[in-house]
Amino acid sequence: MIFINPKIDWAFKKIFGSSESKDILISFLNALVYDGIPTIKDLEIINPNLPPALQGLKDTYLDVKAKLLDGTIVIIEMQVLNVESFGKRVLYNAAKTYAFQLESGEGYRMLKPVIALTITDFKLFAKSDSLVSRFIYKEKTTNFEYTDNNIELVFVELPKFTKELAQLETIADKWIYFMKYARSLTEVPETMDSIPAIHKAFEIANQANLSREEREEIEKREMFVYDQQGAISLGKAEGKQEEKLEIARKLLALLDNETISQTTGISVDEVQNLRETND
C-alpha cells in the first residue's frame, strides 16, 4: 500500500476535514488537545469541502475548522514551511476567528472559546524540548490565569517526536506517528489499526482509494512543498541579498509576492519591483 502524505495541505484536509471525517477529527482532537480524555463527544466540521485545484500552486497552508457542542471553535492547521512571522500568523488567525463570531448587535457574552491547534514539520520553539506546547493568557508576574481565557494556542512539533513504532503508548503517540510517518509506510501497523478512527484515516489516506485526478493533485502539491523547502534552505544558506533576489526571480512564476517575501526574506516591494522588471 501507498499512503498520501498527511502533512500536505490537500491530504490533511482530505483526512481530517472532509464530510466523512467527523469521528477521525474527534479522536485526533481528544488525543492532542485533551490528553486522550474523550472530552469531545460530537462536533461540526465547518466548510468540509476540499480546496479546489490550485491556480499556480500559490497556497502554502490550509486549515480545518470545527465547532464543538459547547460552541468552542477549533482551528487545526498543518504547517510544513517555517516562513517568516509564522507565529504572528497563528495568533492573528485565532484572534480573527474569535472576533468574527459576533453578528451585528450581539454582545460580548456570545463569544465562545477558540483553540488553535498547529502541527509543524519543523522545530518552532528551539529552546524547549516539549513535543506539545500550550499557550494561554497569564499575569506576567504572578502567573495567574486571565479571567476569560478564551484563546488557546496548542503546538505539536513533529521533529521532536522520536518514538519508534514499538514504543507507542498513548493514542496521541499513535496520531503523531501517523502524521509523521504515514507517507513512508507500506501497511497499517497492527497496534494502530485496532483504533477505529486511525484505521479509517489510513483508509482515506490509501492512494488506491483515490481517483487519478486526486492522485495527480496531491503529487503537484507535494512537489510544490518540496520546491519551497529547497528554496528556503537555499535562501538561509546563501543569505546574500543578490542571491535572495535571484531565488525570488525563479519563484515569480510560482508564488505571489507575499509568499516570495516570506520565503526569501526580501520585502514585498522588492518582489514587486522584480516582477515589474521581468515583465
Rank of each mutant, 00 (worst) to 15 (best):
V114T: 02
A116P: 00
A116H: 15
L117N: 07
L117W: 07
L117C: 11
T118K: 06
T118N: 15
T118C: 15
I119M: 07
T120I: 09
D121L: 15
D121E: 15
F122V: 04
F122Q: 05
L124H: 11
L124R: 04
A126L: 11
A126H: 10
K127P: 01
K127A: 13
S130N: 13
L131Q: 04
L131H: 02
L131M: 08
L131Y: 01
V132Q: 00
R134L: 03
Y137L: 14
K140C: 07
T141Y: 10
T142K: 13
N143P: 02
N143T: 07
F144A: 10
T147R: 13
D148V: 08
D148Q: 06
N149F: 07
N150S: 12
L153M: 12
V154A: 06
V154S: 03
V154W: 04
F155G: 00
F155A: 00
V156H: 03
L158M: 08
P159S: 02
F161I: 02
F161M: 03
T162D: 15
T162E: 15
E164F: 08
E164N: 12
E164G: 11
E169N: 09
E169W: 01
T170L: 04
T170V: 04
I171E: 14
I171Q: 12
A172Y: 01
A172D: 04
D173R: 09
D173K: 06
K174H: 11
W175K: 06
I176F: 01
I176N: 01
Y177D: 10
F178W: 10
F178I: 08
F178V: 03
F178R: 00
F178P: 05
K180P: 09
K180R: 15
Y181R: 10
Y181Q: 05
Y181C: 12
A182I: 07
S184I: 14
S184D: 15
T186E: 13
T186M: 12
E187F: 07
V188P: 04
P189Y: 10
E190Q: 11
T191K: 08
D193A: 10
S194W: 07
A197C: 02
I198S: 06
K200W: 04
